[in-house]
Design a protein around this nucleic acid. Sequence first.
DNA 1: GCCAACGTTGGC
DNA 2: GCCAACGTTGGC
Length: 211
Amino acid sequence: MAPKKRSRAAPSHSEASTETAGGRKARKEPAEEQQKDSYSHWLMKSEPESRIENGVDVKFGIEDLKALPNQTGCWDGVRNYQARNFMRDMRVGHQAFFYHSNCKEPGIAGLIKVVKEAYVDHTQFDKKDAHYDPSSKPENPKWSMVDVQYERTMKRFIPLSELKKHHLQHKAKGGPLKGVALFTRARLSVQPLSEEEFDFVLSLEDADNQI
DNA sequence: GCCAACGTTGGC
DNA sequence: GCCAACGTTGGC
């Protein structure tokens, strides 16, 4: 999964979500912002190295987001129902880790924040797009995206290998990362973190926490 | 580039 | 609605 460089799409109507495909419930009431059991921290995967899909380079690393006008871009190209549903749960101000996937050194590169809530991902209708979906019709769009803004690069890159060590350790002896989605639902490109998980990962930035 | 894990599709 | 075949993700 890799969003493309695009600073802002033409504003589309935000869809009332209907189908859920086994994920969590989609929202209906934009007025009720604070649903209790919903997440407010996320991890979003993108590929920082060039790879051609449908004739298009899907490269989009944190530096690419940082380079966009206003350091803001739309997170398009998500084509998995669970990941989409998580994006629909996102609210303005939520923080997410920017994760580099499918690359030489996978891991957490930085922090981003949600600046626009879910709306129609126009790239699903674009034959020239890497993530064109011929099965989706404009009258009933399948896929959504959010806008995110670069917040900062991590004080140091947090490699997947390090996160995995903690995960395994926590699984054996208990700890915040014992059930973290990055390993228990490895293929999800947009995933939630509990506050505890999020805080623990943040604490890894400090050198004395290194393994 | 290999391939395990897992999500999706479609025949029945 | 089962499930085999197929396609994709993403670490290694």
